[in-house]
Design a binder for these strands. Structure first.
Lengths: 343, 343
DNA sequence: TTGAAAGCGTTACCAG
DNA sequence: CTGGTAACGCTTTCAA
């Protein structure tokens, strides 16, 4: 194993100084075209590869951003990663992805690791509403931009989505179709995100002169699919004795996963969607577009989220930021598929 | 903005040398317990964070492995990443994930970047069967371990799954249920993976004294869901004029995505699964377990894949590898759900 | 047990 | 335009 080829190796072979090689490599104008050519071809020939560690050390720039997410196998994150990745690339940054496994301790570990890597900024979809453990470690040494469902105003910089508007879009659509008995099934309602979705639902129902009908369990209740499954069964068991007219004609859920649970329960109970009941979800996870699912749902613009997040983070990274906080809220939109129908 | 706190800062404040701090930080035995304590508490107090770039530079170890995948939003990869990540962590490595967007040029770019980062090994799920462009860049400077559907024996180190066995499991199950007319719909059959799945199907059918019935289009045909959709419609249009008995009673597909296409077509044609026809997929993507899908399918042990891949890569990374190539093949297993039925 | 000194590969700053 | 020279922050001898 011969010594690896460094800038010095090249310099020697080319009969120039290390400084000259560095300049040629970095496209500096302070070098003659002839020398540059010579150096560059020599680099190609010898298979020279820059040592990023050495560069980072001296320039104090790693050209790397960190990304912390709770779980990459949760349907929404792969696309968010891609959005962030694409935009970061445009701006000359690499993204270092860390999956925290929904664990505070891993979140802490990774933040420390990212700090050791000297990332220039971090995008975090935090595990919990409270991010004080993160702040405590970072101590403001690196700008952080928060994204995801746990975002709230305690956080300095964030990109959120307008969850109230999302609900309003969903309800408005159902009302347009003639529905008046619209129940909302909401899991996990402690988070800001879910609170907003509920608020939007309530506001739009009221605006249309309808009575809100909210099914939302405590934090000890199951989440996602399991929750939707149980609550829908509940809803129908309870109304079983009553007239059929007392049932909701449409269900709006706090997430697609909850909607999936509803679908499962409905199938078991012989309730047809959308013939017997209309259903609208939230998130537009990949499943929602499957031929066997085709769920009408509220989508957040994921690519746009990535773009915005990186742009805001970069603003926060500037030597003397113009403003104190960097925040943005994205507008969701309704994706019409096959689980809603005129009544 | 004061100077960041370095090992020197600590050394000064503690009244010791930089070397001493380094030793304390790295748990070296060559240092007194008292001095160590003093140094450590000072580090905590001042919020000292190691500079990984500087460490890498001098130790020539980045403690980082690269991972190249074609598309993180493809259902199978998030879990593979997690498996790899977990195992790498156990061995003290971080994983740098690169999404190549199914693009040869990005694959090349990222390989170069990883080389610049001085990753100590790379796991690659390549975009194409041919990986010569990667070899050309890497020049053997870093060990590579290949995974994924494109793996073939041209590649030095790899972890594959036994696709022949997967098919045999599927067919054997269908035969046990009484099926004799079992068609296989296979997209994208140019790859080693798909060839093996076909071979396994053929072998098992023959072993059971049944006639293989293979539907496999050329490379110009669509892939995945679209392919399954079209081929299933084809199959039924063709057999529409014939007796119903001439139709297959079961379909085995080369992937879950193809099976999803079949389900869509079947739904449109009024063919009930599994009442009218049984269906088995391959891959066990997350969708497969959805309540509205519940697809019986062949699964590769993804976590095991991650473990093995990292272990083999680490073997290949050892100074003087024991053997030339590092290869392993994993055994798939059949996941029984609700799309197959006794005939 | 401790520390001084020598690098690791690169860039930045000047003086030629 | 070019090339020494001095950092960057750390680890690793080796001598005390």
């Amino acid at each position: 194993m011969g010594m690896s080829v460094t800038i010095k190796t090249i310099a020697q072979k080319a009969g120039v100084s290390a400084a000259a090689v560095s300049k040629a490599l970095n496209g500096s104008p302070d070098i003659g075209a002839a020398t540059r050519e010579k150096i560059l071809s020599l680099c190609a020939e010898l298979g020279y590869t820059r040592n990023q560690a050495a560069r980072s050390l001296v320039t104090n720039r790693s050209s790397t951003l960190g990304l912390l997410i709770p779980d990459i196998s949760t349907p929404i994150y792969p696309e968010i990663f891609k959005g962030l990745d694409a935009q970061a690339k445009k701006r000359g940054y690499r993204i270092f992805l860390c999956d925290t496994n929904r664990t505070i301790s891993m979140e802490e570990d990774y933040v420390r690791i990212l700090l050791e890597q000297r990332v220039q900024g971090i995008v975090i979809a935090p595990v919990s509403n409270d991010v004080s453990h993160i702040q405590r470690i970072v101590r403001g040494r690196v700008p952080i931009l928060y994204i995801g469902g746990k975002v709230n105003d305690e956080m300095e910089n964030y990109v959120a989505t307008d969850n109230q508007m999302g609900s309003r879009l969903a309800i408005s659509h159902l009302v347009d179709l003639g529905h008046r008995r619209i129940a909302m099934i909401c899991d996990n309602y402690g988070t800001k995100t879910k609170k907003d979705r509920i608020a939007g639902y309530r506001a739009e129902m009221t605006a249309k002169g309808l009575d809100p009908w909210i099914v939302a369990g405590g934090s000890d209740h199951p989440e996602g699919m399991e929750y939707g499954y149980r609550m829908f069964r509940n809803l129908f068991d309870l109304s079983a004795s009553e007239a059929k007219a007392a049932r909701p004609s449409a269900i709006y859920t706090s997430s697609d996963m909850v909607a999936l649970g509803v679908m499962k329960a409905a199938a078991e109970l012989g309730v047809k969607i959308p013939q017997d009941i209309s259903l609208v979800g939230y998130d537009d996870i990949m499943f929602a577009s499957l031929p066997t699912v085709m769920l009408t749902t509220v989508a957040q613009p994921r690519f746009e989220l990535g773009r915005l997040a990186i742009d805001l983070l970069c603003k926060a990274m500037e030597p003397s930021p113009q403003v104190e906080t960097h925040r943005a809220t994205l507008e969701p939109k309704l994706i019409l598929r096959s689980t809603t129908r005129k009544i």
